[in-house]
Design a protein around this nucleic acid. Structure first.
Lengths: 136, 136
DNA sequence: GTAGATGCAAAGTATTTGCGACAAG
DNA sequence: CTTGTCGCAAATACTTTGCATCTAC
């Protein structure tokens, strides 16, 4: 089965090598937000000859092609996730490291307004919430 | 004249050495958000014997003491700024690199609500807007 | 067939650290 | 005095790159 990301590569004219197919598949199947090490480990289980340099080159390429998103959460290594249509932001549990994805259109709208207020067109943004789980 | 940051160090019981006083003064007088290299250069103009290791150690210490804030803007080196009472977020001009500080209480409120919705107490957040200046 | 991709190891960046000398409280 | 800081250079962590070889299209 060709992965979701593999399809996107074809759409965008990104050449598909065996290595890229494996990386694409692993990322497509990941429900978390792996960093390069974690991704390399998962990829190595499929083909242990793939080098970490290729993983770095590939995530960079995928990011530039708009296939993956890179996140630099506080004090952590860069993490990656598949970029799909619906944009979302992240709520990070500072105790467990768990990451919750959320969408809040009201905030999105206000961000545009703020940018406009200063004479800017908003082209991108980063919103991360860091929280502690409440005992309920 | 002792700098603003110098006062904060005394308040927080951070030992004040000559090097720290100089770094504090340079940061207090900076209106931009320098990275460690830039800060080191400015500090070197005052005392060229201060090592970059000390600058790294000091910004880390100041950050942990709640005196400086560290920012990791997209694809850039870490930048620092003095942390004052009024919290603010940043709007970054992706062409010029100019950084505009802003406050939007409505967004702040909504962030808390989002965290609560997922059962979290919001302890920190990061909001960065990236924009292009509109021709007016 | 050719441009681009890969693996490897070496080189870059950014940052941290061990250690002996030194200075603040 | 004593604990913590400094400068220096070496070490570390993460990421990129030169080069010879290989592969997708």
């Amino acid at each position: 089965m060709s992965s979701n990301i593999e399809k996107k590569c074809k759409d965008k004219g990104v050449k598909l090598t065996d290595q890229r197919k494996i990386i694409a598949k692993v990322m497509s199947e990941s429900t978390d937000h792996p960093n390069v090490d974690e991704l390399y480990n998962r990829v190595s289980e499929v083909d242990k000859k793939i080098s970490i340099a290729t993983v770095y080159r590939t995530v960079k390429l995928f990011e530039e092609s708009g296939i993956l998103a890179k996140h630099d959460f506080k004090g952590e290594k860069a993490r990656y996730e598949e970029l799909n249509e619906g944009h979302h932001d992240h709520l990070i549990d500072i105790k467990s490291g768990e990451i919750i994805e959320f969408v809040d259109n009201e905030i999105e709208e206000l961000q545009k307004k703020v940018a406009e207020k200063y004479g800017y067109e908003l082209v991108d943004h980063k919103l991360e919430l860091y929280g502690i789980k409440k005992k309920s």
